[in-house]
């Protein structure tokens, strides 16, 4: 598909005989925000790891920009498809050290101005640069984690429940930030969230996953009126 940032064809993933993903087929449109919702254990985070190349599908194909995922060098793929996780893991040391990691890994140095600019994009002022990353609040860590992922200028950004442990205000700030990144840089966003309101207000499209299957896809308002019986129960909060 021409306007696909990411395409999955009959993707299966199993570990020790346990089927975690079953026959996932779908297209993530380029430059849009697609939310990924579903009960815990549906296989959403595993799907992210397959897209970022941290794991490989047992069968089926994943295409990034119409190129098979396996044809990319792993490091190239991971720079192209960035990922930010709920825990926002930080390395010990300063904010500057953490934000510069993607460049350090390539043997390059990050200028202070560039780091300050990235912090500004995610709503942190440059006074944070010399602070210890371990002293940051949950919301600040998430912002730094997103800024760090942006250093690689990913065309697709995978966000795994990045607001689930944040308070309402921080959550809304991060939502605004993601919309800004999507609109200003044209970055394709795929966002795993448990918050269905967030999925509908932020997402252009939604994928609903249950028990390792992709059960429904479409514009985000599908969550208002799902056609699948299991999704109806999930939306009503009967399945967690």
């Amino acid at each position: 598909m021409k306007d696909a940032a990411l395409e999955l064809k009959h993707v299966h993933f199993s570990v020790n005989g346990l089927h975690i993903l079953k026959d996932i087929t779908g297209v993530i449109p380029k430059g849009k925000i697609t939310t990924l919702v579903g009960p815990s254990g549906a296989g959403k985070s595993t799907l992210f790891k397959l897209c970022n190349g941290l794991q490989t599908a047992s069968s089926g194909d994943i295409y990034i920009k119409n190129k098979r995922i396996g044809s990319y060098e792993p490091t190239e793929l991971r720079r192209l498809v960035g990922i930010a996780l709920q825990e926002a893991t930080m390395l010990s040391g300063s904010v500057m050290k953490n934000i510069a990691v993607p460049l350090t890994l390539q043997g390059k140095q990050m200028e202070k101005e560039e780091a300050a600019h990235l912090l500004e994009i995610v709503g942190l002022d440059q006074g944070f640069l010399n602070r210890d990353a371990s002293d940051l609040s949950g919301g600040q860590r998430q912002r730094l984690s997103i800024a760090r992922t942006l250093v690689n200028r990913p065309q697709t950004l995978l966000l795994d429940e990045i607001t689930s442990s944040l308070d309402k205000v921080s959550q809304q700030d991060i939502e605004k930030l993601i919309v800004k990144i999507n609109q200003e840089f044209g970055t394709t966003i795929i966002w795993i969230t448990h918050n269905l309101e967030q999925a509908m207000s932020i997402g252009d499209y939604t994928w609903v996953m249950m028990d390792g299957e992709l059960v429904e896809t479409g514009p985000s308002d599908l969550l208002n009126n799902p056609s699948d019986a299991r999704v109806k129960r999930f939306v009503k909060g009967e399945i967690e």
């Binding site: 941290l54 991971r78 960035g82 990691v101 993607p102 690689n152």
Partner: peptide, 15 residues
């Protein structure tokens, strides 16, 4: 988690 973070940011196994 640190290992996975560095890999996800484009680092090599050695890094």
């Amino acid at each position: 988690k640190q290992t996975e973070l560095i890999l996800s940011l484009g680092g090599t196994p050695k890094q």
